[in-house]
């Protein structure tokens, strides 16, 4: 049960086989998705018809490549926009929440902490629906009483951003709080003692210390927003983010262009992962 304790060969061998199979199970779908992006066939399935870049660069039907596929490219753009908004918002509120919970005592703090965790416990579909219901109530109320049709309260990008922001903020808060907890308060006092104002202390000492956590939270937030499906599905309007566009395409029956876009997503994630590892190194 430990590498230092001798074991029978058969036991060893079967344990390692199990681990091997586990990782095959873990990686197989990803490898399959990636490799069929280069299959020169109209369907992402065997037989292998030879290697091609068509699913990225070809500009004519039926083998319309990713870079010429208007709806998918548009989806990437929308997702990128949404992810940027969600990341910015959730880092801002996450940082503020982290200070609130780590630095201040107030009544019902315990209860507030449970509330803070709530968005992680509620299934994404329900979170999306509840926001849909509420914004609809608001929009109808305004329309009935004042007669204005508030377009932004109808399903669309604003609601998508708000829906994702609702639960991603909790994650950002947890990540940033964890680092703030480790902060040595005497650093702030030292800076204050050396003549810095409260604001300068925050700007020159506390925030630089939190920066790796804020960047880390940002990477996670961006990724979760980009990949989110459940909450988005309920709130989406006419502008479809990438996951929704892909889902629609998947229901129609897919061509390897979906593999191409998946590969693109994986590379993007890998890049983000790399950034976050570099950030970890920095601290």
């Amino acid at each position: 049960m430990l590498p230092t304790i001798p074991r029978s060969n058969r036991y060893n061998w079967s344990y390692q086989l199990y681990i091997f199979l586990f990782f095959v199970y873990l990686i197989a779908p990803l490898v399959v998705v990636a490799s069929f992006a280069f299959n020169d066939s109209l369907f992402p399935s065997l037989p292998w018809k030879g290697f091609t870049w068509d699913w990225f660069i070809n500009d004519t039907q039926p083998k319309l490549g990713l870079f010429h596929d208007r709806s998918l490219m548009n989806g990437i753009g929308v997702s990128f926009f949404v992810a940027c908004c969600v990341t910015g918002l959730s880092i801002a509120i996450g940082t503020s929440n982290a200070f609130l919970f780590e630095r201040y005592e107030f009544r019902f703090k315990q209860f507030a902490y449970i509330l803070l965790l709530l968005p992680l416990v509620i299934p994404g579909v329900i979170l999306g629906i509840s926001i849909l219901v509420f914004s609809n109530t608001l929009a109808n109320g305004v329309e009935d009483h004042i007669g204005w049709d508030l377009e932004f309260l109808r399903p669309g990008l604003l609601l998508v951003v708000l829906g994702q922001f609702a639960f991603i903020t909790t994650i950002a808060t947890l990540v940033i709080s964890a680092r703030l907890k480790k902060f040595d308060r005497s650093l702030e006092e030292a800076a204050y003692n050396l003549g810095a104002s409260r604001f300068e202390v925050l700007r020159t000492i506390t925030l630089p210390y939190l920066r790796p956590a804020m960047l880390g939270a940002g990477v996670v937030a961006f990724l979760m927003s980009f990949e989110n499906f459940n909450t988005t599905l309920m709130l989406v309007g006419s502008d479809a983010p990438l996951t929704i566009a892909m889902y629609d395409r998947l229901k129609e029956g897919s061509t390897p262009v979906l593999n191409a876009v998946s590969l693109f997503l994986m590379l993007g994630s890998a890049l983000l992962a790399l950034i976050s590892i570099l950030v970890q190194k920095e601290k």
Binding site: L26, I27, A28, P29, L30, V32, V33, F36, P44, S45, L223, F226, E227, F229, T243, M246, Y247, L250, S254, L258, N259, S262, L265, M266, S269, A270, L272, A273
Partner: peptide
């Protein structure tokens, strides 16, 4: 942790291809 970095949609798509 790898699957976490890939969208659930992509992962499920992979299983469908398989």
């Amino acid at each position: 942790l790898l699957p976490f970095w890939v969208s659930e949609l992509v992962r499920t798509f992979g299983w469908m291809i398989l």
